[in-house]
Every structure is written in structure tokens, then in C-alpha cells.
Design a protein around this nucleic acid. Structure first.
Lengths: 342, 342
DNA sequence: ATGAAAGCGCTAACAG
DNA sequence: CTGTTAGCGCTTTCAT
């Protein structure tokens, strides 16, 4: 593979390298005449600009860095990450950006990668797919005033781009819908309360009850972990206390466990709602109603926000520092009364 | 963020830039004396080498490009990709490599990205996570003699690095094991035959039967799609013909469908085996026995092969152009006789 | 509208 | 062992 450079093209087109460069950058003040000639020469010589050299001269790589958590929790196996990454990639490609990614086991390692990306000048901006509450990385990036976006609403949203669902609203709507169908005894089983998502969804649940004058029963609220087992155990515990009409959860995995508990205990008429609409939800029996969070769109919007900031779309940027991705309540058998027993 | 360059460090350490450069590259012929001085200056000035400039001078980016298929089939939601990507990242980090990725909808688009990566000089090598049979991209990369590795054994393995499981053996072993426990009527439900994986696993199934003198019954072999629904339908069809003692499948999703069919038809004593050991397998009832393909390791080894090639580990390279990742048969309730009915 | 020349930050002969 | 010098391939003033 012999390498053809801007000089070769210049020679072939009988112009100077700078002219070729201007053609590459689509500089307006170039005569159509020569532009055509240069373009032709490029084609002929099969010329591709060297992105590295451009980056060096431009001081910009047109590359975004994505930081992923290296959790091997079930959390990680849910399709959220891969879908978000796809969304990021799809939008980035649209705008001519490249994507780098890396996994980190913990906050410390993540900081290391962030610094590497930034100081080595590999990337123009960073996407945090790994946001913790109280995230040191967020603080750091804010401090040095580096362009970044975080997926998941951060604790302190001042001065940071973020995209997330409205988890409060999503759960509020689900519960309200179910109440309006005549259900009153509604229980909640959620993941760890340290996560914003859990707290928001729990809040949505509570408000929905309050809004319809239903008293909140703390025995009907359980938060533990994102796992099928915990869902199962929590459901058992719940039912020892009292049998609800509905159990809403904050994750499909939890809901799967709930479903299993109900099957074992031969309890029929409890409606169940999952969250995240994972690919197995339709395949449960009964098929599981779930809230779709549009993971791909989350990634897509994160990339959009960041790139807009990088390209200094001031008009938009100054006002809007976040994007809320809508959720969809996907109803299946598990929220149908009188499931066809078979 | 004012930028500190190699010159600043040189000045501070009272040496020439080249000396600093040598320290960066860990060049042996540098006195410990000055090395220390330079290192100290770096620390003090908070210096990080500019990776772009290094890349330009070195003609190497220490970056790998990963190509992903943009399928929205269920295939994609299975954790294979994200795990493989993690494996790639983990190994790459070990060797100081960065990773870029992009999704492509089809072969044509993929070719576009490959060319972009290559000609723009962004990456040193390419990992194809999207290998089709008869892959144009493979042909192309081979032709221009570009360093790449493909995940999944390609049709023609000459002159290409690849990593995969031994799917033949994996299925062969499973079936043999089951035969040795006294089962004779063993059926096979697989994905599309256009995939190497399917054919290899089917072959393994057949050989295992033959090896134990069991006649192959084509009515006991069904191949269709990777979906729960197809698994369900195939199982129904199968059982209309005859009830087998065991059904082996080539994907958990298919196996989930089989399980469902059996529950509906109230057929108890059929053993079922999945493939890929997805995260929901343990949560079926009965919990699903499945073959773990070690996706993360596949990615890890792919990165290893490629980087070794890039760094010219001739001794290894010349002989070994592939790596076979072991599989593990994870047994759960679904291959236990007399499931505790409850 | 185009060219000449300097420079982005680092590396790599070549000398010594 | 260390410094000098000339690039890597492209962009960008500054002239013209």
C-alpha cells in the first residue's frame, strides 16, 4: 500500500498543497474550475486525507470517548448498553465523528481513562455511560471545563449535559393507569435505592397513589437488587404480608422473579409490570408488560448534545443542557385481568 | 487548559526534545540520571504526550477498529456482542491499545467504514464482529493485506486470523453425554442453516448419534430462525411427529420456546439444552441447561491475535492463525430427569 | 483565488 | 548516551 498524500494530489492537479487542503475542507473561496480538477485528481490517485495529520493540524480529532462500567451484574447483560452504544454510533456517524470506548472497573480506573483520553488529545468530548451518584469523574470534567455528557440525570445538573428518561413520570403514569382500571392494592419492588432511577420510580409510584387518594403502605414497598432472585424473594415476602392486585417493579429481571413466585404459589390474579422492556419480556408466560426506555435513543441524544456543544451551536446550547427521552408502556398479558389459564 | 509540550519538558529538564521523546518511548539507552530528571519535569509540568502527534510521527495509532453489525434481530440483544467488546477492550488496554467501533447496516456500509478506517489511517488493525459467510470485507482486507481478525470461523481460513468456538465439538459432547445417560431419541432445533454455527452444531449432533450407533431421523431435525417463537413452533411440530427424550437447540431463545411448548402441552420428561448460556437461562423453569461459549474470551483472544500480528511476534504468528475458545456445558434442571414437579 | 512557508507535537536517523 | 535536524501529512496565516 503505497501512500498518496496531499502533495501527490497537488502535483497531479497542478496546484499547491494548500489548494488541495482547501478543497478537502470545502473552503468556499476556491474556483469551481480548480475544485473540479483537484477532486478529479483525488479520485484518480485514490486519495484519502490522513485523519491523524488533519487532527494534529486542526487540534481536533472528531472523536468521542465513551466510558462504560465493567460491572458483571445482570444490569450489564441487559441490552441497555449495547443499544445506547448503537445510538451513539448512529448519531456520531451522521455528523462525521468517530467513537472510542473503554471499560473501567471502578471510579478510579475510569478517571485514569478519562485523563488518558483528554491529555493525550485522543478525543474531543466524553460520554459517561457509567454515571454513579456523586461521581468524581463528573466533578473532574466540570472543573476542567471539558466537554462531556452524562447518561442518567446526575445529582447536580448545573453545568452538565445529560440525557435520561423521566423515570418519575414513567412510573407515575403506569401506576395511575392501573389505578384507573380499578386497582387499589399496588405494591412496588425496586432495585437498590442508591440509584437515582430507583428513587425516581419509587417517587412516581408514591405520588400516583397519593394523587388518587390511596394510602401508601410501606409493607408494599421493597427495594433490594436487580436480580431475578431478589424479585422472587421480595414477591414471596410481599405475599406473606398481603396479596396485592398489582406489583410494579423497576426492572424486568425483578419482574421475572415475581412472575415465578406467583406461578409457584399458584397465585393468579396479580398484575405485574416490568421496566426496561428487555427482549425476553414478550416470552414470559404470561408475557410481561414493561416500560420501554428507548435506550438507543438515549445514546443518540447524548451524542447529539455533545456534538452540538463541540460545534458551538450556541443558540441551542445555552438554554438546553439536557434531553428527556420518552418512555412507552408496553402492555402485554401480565397486566390483563383474567389471563387465559392454560 | 494551556498545553505543555515536549519542548517545555525538555527545557525544564535541561535536555533536548529527543531525549524526552526517548524517555517517553522508554528507550534503553538513556542514563538513569537524566531519565529521572525528565520524568520529574514531566510530573511537575503535568505533561502528557500528545497521542496524535506521536501517531503521525510513528505512523501507528495503537488503535483497533471494531465493526459491528446493526442487526436488530434478537441475535443482537443477546449479550454476545457487548461481552465480546468487553473482552476486546480488556485485552487492548493491557497492551496499550485504543478501540474504535462502528455499526453498519449491511456489507456495503461496512466496506465504507473499513475503508474510512484504513485510508484515513485511524486504526492499525480491524476486528470483524460481523462476519457473514462469503464476506466481501474479508476478501477485501485479505487482498490489500491489511491486518485484521474475524470473530467466527470464516469460510476460507487461509491467510486470515480468526477466533471461534469449536461448535461441532461443543454439540458433539453435549449429545454424547446425553446419550450415555441412556437417551436415544434426541431431536435438534437450530437457527438458520446459512450460519456456520448452525451447520457445525448440527454436524456435531449427527456425528454424536452416528458415533453411538443411533440412526439419524430427519424428522427430528428442524432448522429455522433464532427466535423464541420459532423454537415454540418447531417443538410443537416435532412433538406431533413423535415425542423425543431430549431436544438440543442452538440458542437459548429457541430453547425458551421449546420449554414453553412443553409446558403448554404438559409434556414433562423431555430434556432441553440451550446454547450461549444467556443471562435468563438460570431463570427459566425448569432452569435451562446451556452451553456457555465464553463470549468475552472470544473478544479477548481476537484482540490478542491481532495485536500480536501488529507487533510482529513472528514466532507465534506464522504458525497460529486462529484461536479456539472452549465451551462449557452448564447443566441445570432442564437436563435432569424427574424434575421436581411443583 | 492561489501559493509559500511556518508550524501542529513528536520521532528518528545521524553525529558526536 | 545525547543533541541536531529533518520530517510525518495537513492547515493556515500572509502575501500576491
Amino acid at each position: 500500500m503505497m501512500v498518496v498524500t496531499i502533495k501527490d494530489v497537488a502535483k497531479a492537479a497542478n496546484v499547491s498543497p494548500s489548494t488541495v487542503s482547501r478543497v478537502i475542507a470545502d473552503n468556499p473561496k476556491i474556483s469551481n474550475e480548480t475544485k473540479k480538477r483537484v477532486l478529479k485528481a483525488m479520485k484518480q490517485l485514490n486519495y484519502y486525507p490522513n485523519a491523524i495529520a488533519r487532527s494534529l493540524a486542526n487540534k481536533s480529532t472528531k472523536t468521542l470517548g465513551v466510558l462504560l462500567p465493567n460491572t458483571d451484574e445482570d444490569l450489564f447483560n441487559n441490552p441497555f448498553f449495547i443499544q445506547a452504544m448503537r445510538g451513539i454510533s448512529v448519531y456520531a456517524q451522521k455528523r462525521g465523528y468517530y467513537i472510542m470506548y473503554s471499560y473501567s472497573d471502578n471510579e478510579e480506573e475510569e478517571m485514569k481513562f478519562i485523563k488518558k483520553y483528554i491529555y493525550s488529545k485522543w478525543v474531543d468530548g466524553i460520554i459517561l455511560l457509567s454515571a454513579r451518584e456523586e461521581d468524581e469523574c463528573i466533578e473532574y470534567l466540570k472543573n476542567i471545563n471539558y466537554p462531556f455528557v452524562v447518561v442518567g440525570r446526575p445529582k447536580d445538573t448545573s453545568n452538565v449535559l445529560w440525557v435520561d428518561n423521566d423515570n418519575f413520570k414513567a412510573m407515575y403514569n403506569v401506576v395511575t393507569t392501573l389505578i384507573e382500571r380499578g386497582n387499589k392494592k399496588i405494591a412496588f419492588i425496586g432495585g437498590p435505592e442508591k440509584f437515582n432511577v430507583t428513587r425516581d420510580r419509587l417517587e412516581g409510584y408514591k405520588r400516583a397513589l397519593q394523587g388518587r387518594g390511596i394510602k401508601i403502605d410501606n409493607n408494599f414497598i421493597i427495594t433490594s437488587e436487580f436480580s431475578e432472585l431478589k424479585g422472587y424473594e421480595s414477591a414471596i415476602k410481599l405475599m406473606e404480608y398481603d396479596i396485592p392486585e398489582v406489583i410494579v417493579t423497576t426492572d424486568d429481571l425483578i419482574a421475572f422473579g415475581v412472575l415465578k413466585a406467583m406461578k409457584e404459589k399458584k397465585i393468579g390474579e396479580v398484575l405485574v409490570v416490568g421496566f426496561n422492556n428487555t427482549s425476553l419480556a414478550p416470552y414470559q408466560s404470561p408475557s410481561l408488560s414493561s416500560v420501554d426506555i428507548n435506550s438507543e435513543k438515549i445514546g443518540y441524544q447524548a451524542a447529539r448534545l455533545l456534538i452540538n456543544k463541540l460545534e458551538d451551536n450556541e443558540e441551542l446550547k445555552s438554554k438546553i443542557n439536557h434531553y428527556v427521552v420518552e418512555t412507552n408502556f408496553i402492555e402485554r398479558e401480565s397486566t390483563q385481568k383474567s389471563l387465559p389459564e392454560k
